[in-house]
Design a protein around this nucleic acid. Structure first.
Length: 674
DNA sequence: ATTAGGG
DNA sequence: CCCTAAT
């Protein structure tokens, strides 16, 4: 059991988990899940806490006298932005269209959207599908920058025409040869995208119109035509950022459906064991929220209690407000989860690009419902809790673990945090201005309102919550962790929690990494004109004292290596699936190592076994009815290809076997004849 | 180290 | 995803 290990958790920001796709196979893992969910509560506590805090501040500084008619505008504005000096984060496309993804979709709409995305094309800057053998056809596709659903379909149709019936592909002559070559080319594209090494395009025999200069920051703006009635803005903005040559392309891609993973930058860790460990950590601490509704009451409960811990002195009047806020937070967590993951990711992307900023905090400004008072209501949808390292003995109880996490985070938040307000990229310094004067109350435009969490230079005021974290804190005493081990938050009293800017913000949330572009989360938030979530310097709280730890050091190590942690679950993105399909189409099944090298070479977390497994499930998925499918919906078109390829290669395999049988029997008979 | 398949 | 038997 994993808990028997000395737990070493790395928190790296916290987000409301993305959608529920937690594996349903709970066998043997239920313990974990519960544990994980507990952590979740902590996250919500934090979320709510900060939100409440900010809200209160807003209230107190709010002195609106005007009554201004507000239009009820349901769209959620997003969000944070911090302008970088002289560095427009997004010169063109990304900033251009003031479109919002409508995250307030509910119920059917949402499902509908998720299930039938407007032309589920996710080809990032992958040039595609031209066929040499057929000029007219190739005219159609050569230089096509992005294959749309239509064109892809054409391509498939074309293929089936050539091959007769799909899946019955007999390699016939040069036509298929051409296709083969083209496919190979395409595959290279994809795989290079995946591998983060865009091929030498300039030398390519298939010149593309991509202006890609690998080592530099590249921003490809691909405007994809929006297929007819898609209600979601559809724009493909691709930023390719080559950080290191061996590292990845990271950037913000186009909106995609359900691809909600946040990602974290490449782990600079060679040791696979550590990688595994890390992955497990993420798995443990960043679980998915399986049933939000179910936990809502619990969360509120926790929320309330936590609030009490340091907002006790606040007037009860705020209670109802906070309750309301909380409800909204929770109810929004569904939609928000997407945003948050995305925003968070975005922040990292920005970071990768070089922009710097303080903490990332995603907030949304909503128009008030009551036109009477013209109140400004803010709801912070998410913020990232800086990386937290928690070490706790295996003998500790789950309760103590929870407490430790909570306290650690609380220490950060409570320890003299200064909140900055950013509006349209500018810091609002004058605390005495009203929101109206500042312009925060205007929600007509795409006003970006952001908050910065900064270490408070000045010691917390008397009214401000004191850092809870202290050795002598009663909270400690009650902790049933063996005294010497709960050393984490030994932050000196009054001292601000050490906040360190991390150039390499590592994300949480399913611990997706940026090993390749496939890991990227299409980022609808990009489309909120100019609302660029700022790059987040992760605020990292670093444990200051370490002495007590030396007590049980090697012990853990030995045991750890023995009981390898289960790897984190990392659902394949559509893009990955696409790549896999393409690779298999070319290489066939049964050559998983080749497939791996071919299409996932740089995706360290995808082993050939993984790919094989994924193919297995893909084939299965393709066979079952769409209703029975789970997880991020795979475009039917891809599934069709899966089936076709599967059929094709199965046949090949069968043919091979028959061939071999014939050969052997031939040998046999000839031997007998002698 | 890979492959194939069950769990 | 994991585990394993068989290559």
């Amino acid at each position: 059991m994993v808990l028997h290990k000395r737990l070493e958790y790395g928190f790296n920001g916290y987000q409301v988990p993305s959608f529920p796709r937690a594996s349903r196979s709970t066998r043997g893992r239920s313990l974990f899940k519960t544990k994980a969910e507990d952590n979740q509560l902590c996250a919500f506590e934090l979320l709510a806490t900060v939100a409440g805090k900010l809200l209160q501040e807003g209230e107190s500084s709010q002195s609106l006298s005007h009554v201004e008619d507000e239009k009820v505008q349901p769209s959620i504005h997003g969000l944070v932005r911090q302008e970088q000096h002289g560095e427009p984060s997004d010169p063109e496309g990304c900033d251009k269209s003031p479109i919002f993804s409508d995250f307030s979709l509910h119920g059917n709409d949402r499902n509908k959207y998720l299930k039938t995305p407007p032309h589920p094309k996710h080809e990032v800057a992958v040039a595609h599908s031209s066929i040499n053998a057929n000029s007219s056809f190739s005219e159609k596709f050569d230089h096509a920058e992005v294959v749309t659903g239509e064109s892809r379909k054409d391509f498939v149709d074309f293929l089936s025409k050539i091959e007769g019936s799909p899946g019955n592909g007999k390699s016939s002559g040069n036509v298929l040869d051409g296709i083969e070559r083209k496919v190979e080319y395409d595959s290279e594209k994809i795989s290079s995208v995946i591998n983060g090494t865009f091929p030498d395009i300039s030398n390519s025999e298939y010149p593309m119109k991509l202006d890609v200069k690998p080592p530099a920051l590249v921003c490809l703006n691909r405007s994809v035509e929006v297929p007819h009635t898609s209600f979601l803005p559809f724009q493909t903005n691709v930023k390719l950022v080559s950080k290191d040559d061996d590292e990845n392309i990271s950037g913000c891609t186009h909106p995609s459906i359900g691809n909600l993973k946040a990602f974290r930058p490449p782990l600079r860790i060679g040791d696979r064991r550590i990688r595994r460990l890390l992955a497990s950590k993420y798995w443990k601490v960043a679980p998915k929220l399986n049933d939000r509704k179910l936990h809502k009451s619990d969360m509120w409960h926790t929320f309330r209690n936590t609030k009490a811990s340091y907002t006790r002195q606040r007037s009860q009047r705020n209670f109802a407000y906070r309750r309301k806020l909380f409800d909204r937070l929770v109810s929004k967590s569904a939609e928000g989860a997407r945003n948050e993951a995305i925003a968070s990711k975005k922040g990292i992307i920005e970071d990768a690009i070089g922009s710097a900023s303080q903490a990332s905090l995603v907030a949304s400004q909503e128009s008030s419902y009551c036109s009477r008072e013209s109140r400004v209501k803010l709801s912070i949808k998410s913020f990232r809790v800086p990386e937290l390292f928690i070490e706790i003995p295996e003998t500790a109880t789950v309760g103590s673990l929870k407490r430790t996490v909570r306290e650690a985070v609380t220490a950060i938040l409570a320890g003299g945090l200064h909140v900055g307000v950013v509006l349209k990229g500018k810091k609002v310094r004058d605390d005495n201005k009203t929101l109206l004067q500042t312009g925060i109350s205007h929600d007509d435009k795409v006003d970006a309102l952001g908050f910065l969490l900064e270490p408070n230079p000045s010691p917390p005021s008397a009214s401000a919550p004191q850092p809870i974290f202290h050795e002598d804190s009663p909270l400690y005493v009650t902790c049933d962790i063996p005294q010497h081990l709960s050393r984490y938050p030994k932050t000196p009293v009054g001292d601000p929690v050490p906040l360190v800017a991390s150039p390499d913000p590592t994300l949480i949330n399913e611990g997706t990494s940026v090993d390749n572009i496939l890991d990227e989360v299409p980022c609808p938030i990009d489309m909120t004109a100019g609302n660029t979530a700022q790059g987040s310097r992760a605020l990292v709280a670093i444990p200051t004292s370490v002495e007590p730890l030396t007590a049980i050091p090697l012990h853990r190590k030995s045991r750890q290596s023995k009981l390898a942690q289960r790897r984190i679950r990392r659902p394949f993105s559509v893009l990955e699936v696409e790549a896999l399909v393409q690779a298999v189409e070319k290489l066939g099944t049964g050559r998983w190592r080749d497939v791996k090298i071919y299409a996932f070479d740089n995706a360290k977390h995808r082993t050939y076994v993984d790919l094989k497994d994924k193919w297995k499930t893909l084939v299965h998925t393709a066979k079952i009815s769409p209703q029975q499918r789970r997880g991020e919906p795979v475009p039917q078109e891809l599934l069709d290809r899966v089936l076709a390829a599967h059929a094709h290669w199965s046949e090949q395999q069968a043919m091979q076997q028959i061939k071999q049988q014939n050969e052997t029997s031939l040998v046999f008979t000839s031997l007998m004849a002698e």
